[in-house]
């Protein structure tokens, strides 16, 4: 008997495309599986990723932006950067895209039960945090988690992703949503300032808490410092690593850091786990 190939994507069709930012280099694609069976098999948790295929161009790994609680389709927010993402941006509703996944470990939603979640994101890296927040705030799951704090920063208001859903969260009294942009801007009524000082201002308690941090390297670095000041331990800080990946299943070797493969053992690591790895990420 031949083994089933994890290199072969399943086919999906683009159901909707949402333009996410003013400069229009970030779009959220919604896919429905051509074969319902494949959707059932696509059993994912927030924080996992998948390889998206544009046939004839190639594949790229993208974090899943939708939450498993959003039934019927899956979503990915894609920034136009390389060849495959550029090709994706040229596609239209009804076009076919291949998907392999879900891949990677994802946010530890089971282990985090009973804890206060401090979700901190910057810029475009918010997609898997969208997934996590929707999942944790869903009526079936909200009771499993304590306080839910979402701190999301951008350089300017035009870059803020997922506006509709952010506004919904702001209206709820069981999520503390803090939005910030780097500098004052006309019409902006939320916070102003970099993410790290805003985290300090919000000052979440480390008591029974987990901080989930996603963003550009400089934001991660400064936020970590603030979290340390606030007495978060390295075990309580979770990060999702970005690495160049190809196969997504731990075989092609390029996301190898120490004896780990980011695509297989990650992308989510606690700061404590990262401390044990060489700084090659």
């Amino acid at each position: 008997m031949q083994l089933e190939s994890p290199y072969i994507p399943v086919l999906t069709t683009i159901k909707s495309i949402v333009r996410e930012n003013e400069v229009n280099d970030i779009k959220t694609f919604e896919f429905v599986f051509n074969d319902e069976e494949n959707y059932k098999k696509f059993d994912y948790v927030a924080g996992q990723f998948a390889e998206l295929s544009v046939f004839g161009v190639g594949e790229c790994p993208i974090g899943i932006a939708s939450s498993p609680t959003e039934k019927g389709s899956i979503k990915f927010t894609v920034k136009k950067a390389g060849e495959v993402t550029a090709a994706l941006h040229n596609l239209e509703v009804g076009d076919i895209v291949g998907i392999r996944g879900p891949l990677g470990n994802g946010w530890p939603v089971e282990e985090m039960k009973g804890k206060n979640l401090v979700i901190i994101g910057g810029g475009f890296a918010f997609s898997t945090l969208r997934s996590l927040t929707i999942f944790a705030s869903h009526e079936d799951n909200r009771k499993n988690y304590g306080d839910l704090t979402v701190i999301y920063g951008n350089r300017e208001s035009g870059e803020v992703l997922y506006r509709d859903i952010l506004e919904e969260w702001e209206k709820r009294d069981d999520i503390n949503v803090v939005l910030t942009i780097d500098r004052e801007q006309e019409g902006w009524t939320r916070k102003v300032g970099f993410v790290a000082p805003i985290v300090k201002e919000v000052s979440p308690s480390p008591e029974k808490a987990v901080a989930i941090v996603c963003g550009p390297p400089i934001m991660i670095k400064t936020t970590q410092d603030v979290l340390k000041e606030l007495k978060f331990s390295d075990e309580q800080i979770l990060l999702s690593l970005e690495m160049r990946m190809k196969c997504g299943i731990g075989k092609c070797g390029r996301c190898n850091v120490g004896n780990k493969f980011v695509c297989l053992d990650g992308p989510v690591f606690s700061q404590a786990e990262l401390n044990k790895l060489p700084k090659e990420y």
């Binding site: 290199y7 295929s53 046939f55 004839g56 161009v57 190639g58 594949e59 190809k246 196969c247 075989k251 092609c252 070797g253 390029r254 190898n256």
Partner: peptide, 25 residues
Amino acid sequence: CHCFDVLDENKQDGSGRRIRIWDTC
């Protein structure tokens, strides 16, 4: 050594293949 790269190769007629080729750290 077994690290590899993955890429698509197209023919004019819309057919093609996804291949892996040797790559190196």
